[in-house]
């Protein structure tokens, strides 16, 4: 008998998820989606891995200096060799977002700066109307503010809706990781809505 986990992975093979930003949210979310078997993962980031990223991002010491998309593609394939990873090592703009994410059923917003989150959200909601955008907002520090999820048409927002990153309130592994996993779970919930188990 094929296990439930394997049946889910087989079903997810045909789907595509875009990850806008391979930092704390994006790298952790992508790893969770790769583990569950999402077949095509499109990752975009212009940055390189730095030592200061390792407090929360899914990279390793020997990857410092590599482009984040390259390092993340390596790590995704270490977790699941059978998935297809498409990398884009450039800054996302309103000009290239519609083309790069055109095939994606779901797009994960994983930027750090608020103005970039706004640019991506407005662009995706207007120009890729068939995709669902899953955003992260409110994840800084280590207070125990409860997390929430708001669901709208083709738009889902995960986070504590309160704790913004600033000098005294840095992004840290636990709360960034929680929001990344909330985003991954919302993605699975959408992709698996018509999934039926075979006995």
């Amino acid at each position: 008998m094929i296990t439930v986990i394997q049946q889910i992975a087989d079903y997810l093979r045909n789907f595509s998820v875009g990850i806008a930003g391979a930092g704390g949210l994006g790298s952790n979310c992508a790893i969770a989606l790769a583990r569950t078997g999402v077949g095509n993962i499109y990752i975009a980031d212009f940055d390189i891995v730095e030592a200061s990223n390792l407090n929360r991002q899914y990279f390793f010491l020997n990857q410092i200096g590599l482009p984040k998309v390259e390092a993340l593609a390596q790590n995704l394939h270490q977790v699941n060799a059978s998935i297809n990873v498409v990398s884009f090592n450039e800054r996302l703009t309103t000009d290239n977002i519609p083309e790069f994410f055109a095939q994606c059923n779901i797009i994960i917003e994983a930027f750090d700066k608020a103005d970039q989150k706004q640019m991506l959200a407005e662009c995706v909601l207007q120009k890729i109307p068939d995709a669902t955008l899953i955003m992260g907002t409110g994840l800084a520090g280590y207070k125990t503010t409860p997390f929430q999820t708001s669901r709208f048409n083709k738009l889902i927002v995960c986070g504590d809706m309160e704790n913004e990153v600033d000098e005294l309130n840095p992004p840290m592994a636990p709360r960034v990781g929680i929001v990344a996993m909330m985003q991954a779970n919302e993605a699975l919930n959408i992709l698996l809505k018509d999934f039926t188990l075979k006995k």
Partner: peptide
């Protein structure tokens, strides 16, 4: 989507559905 520059000129009427998402730095 209603962009920021249009917030002051866009009217909201009875029965409308409005979504306002707060974006916070961090990711």
């Amino acid at each position: 989507v209603v962009r920021s520059e249009d917030h002051e000129i866009t009217r909201v009427n009875d029965g409308d559905k409005l979504e306002v998402i707060h974006l916070m730095a961090g990711g």
